Amino acid sequence: MSLRNTAGRWGGVSQLLHWTVAVLILSIGAIGLVMGELPRSPKYFWVYTLHKSLGLTVLALVLARIAWRLYAGAPQPVPGTPRWQAWLAAAVHLLLYLLALAMPLTGWLYDSASGLRPFRWFGLAEVPKLAAPDEALAGIAQRLHVTLFWLLVALVAVHVGAALYHHLFRRDATLARMLPRGWLSVPDDEVSR
């Protein structure tokens, strides 16, 4: 498997970053949905710190993914993809990158403006505050964080739906080229790409 992206498929580094960020975002979303229901106990604070630590990890990984994509490029659209679908896919990818950056930043801003005690990323390093305590700013950041989460959920659903549509109905290599070779069958003319 090539580490760099080629004209026909995503390379190993892009695949690893893609699936790692996807799993982390799903985990963070699940944690975020349940942590508000937890009683205020030491477990609550541990879960809250985990949510924030994973969020900052996603921020770093998305920045790494963007840098890698700028360096390694991106595959061409699958042959036969209509121009409007290629444009729409590019727009959705851009929005996914922006939301994957904005989500942790708004969460970090909310944490900072809330005036909570400093938190340590996975207990290892203290995370600096982005703003002084400000109740109004904390409220705005929290509402924005929640709104962006639901927008991200909707865009991920579109992204996953499009990948499944291409695999199940168009029967092209769109999904297969984001997976290691051989995980999904693809038409013979696209295997060699």
Rank of each mutant, 00 (worst) to 15 (best):
A131H: 14
V160R: 01
A163F: 10
F119N: 06
F119K: 06
D111E: 14
G123H: 11
P118E: 04
A162W: 07
R177V: 08
D188C: 00
R120G: 07
R83Q: 11
L175V: 07
Y165D: 06
V153P: 00
L109F: 06
E135V: 13
L99I: 09
L155N: 04
L179H: 02
S114N: 10
L88Q: 08
Q142P: 01
L175F: 04
A141P: 00
T147R: 06
Y97G: 03
S185G: 14
L124G: 11
W121S: 12
Q85S: 12
A173W: 03
A157V: 13
A157E: 02
G107L: 09
L109P: 03
F119S: 13
V92G: 05
Q85H: 12
G115V: 11
A90T: 14
L105E: 03
D172L: 08
R143N: 15
K129A: 15
R117V: 12
L88N: 02
E126Q: 15
G115A: 10
L94Y: 02
L151H: 00
A89H: 03
M178Q: 07
Y97W: 10
L96N: 05
P133Y: 11
Y110L: 05
A141N: 01
A102N: 08
Y165P: 01
R171I: 05
T106G: 01
R177A: 10
V186C: 01
A173Q: 06
P79C: 05
A125T: 14
M178N: 04
K129C: 07
S185D: 15
V92E: 00
I140A: 12
S112V: 10
V78Y: 02
P187C: 05
L130C: 09
A132L: 14
W108S: 10
Q85F: 09
G80F: 07
W121Q: 11
A138I: 08
P187A: 08
Q142E: 15
D111V: 12
Y110M: 13
L184M: 07
W108G: 09
K129E: 14
L96V: 10
R117N: 11
R170L: 15
V92N: 05
G182C: 04
D172E: 08
L144M: 12
E135N: 08
H93I: 04
D172Q: 09
A154H: 00
A157F: 05
L179S: 03
F122C: 12
R120T: 13
A176Y: 03
P118H: 08
H145Q: 03
H93V: 07
M103I: 15
V146D: 09
A154Q: 00
R117E: 14
V158W: 06
W84T: 08
P133T: 11
R181G: 07
L151W: 06
L168M: 05
P187V: 07
H167T: 07
F169R: 14
A176H: 03
A154G: 13
L179P: 03
F169V: 14
A132G: 13
A102P: 04
A100I: 02
Q142K: 15
A91I: 11
P128V: 13
A141H: 01
T106K: 02
L175R: 04
L88K: 00
L130A: 10
G107N: 09
A163M: 14
A89D: 01
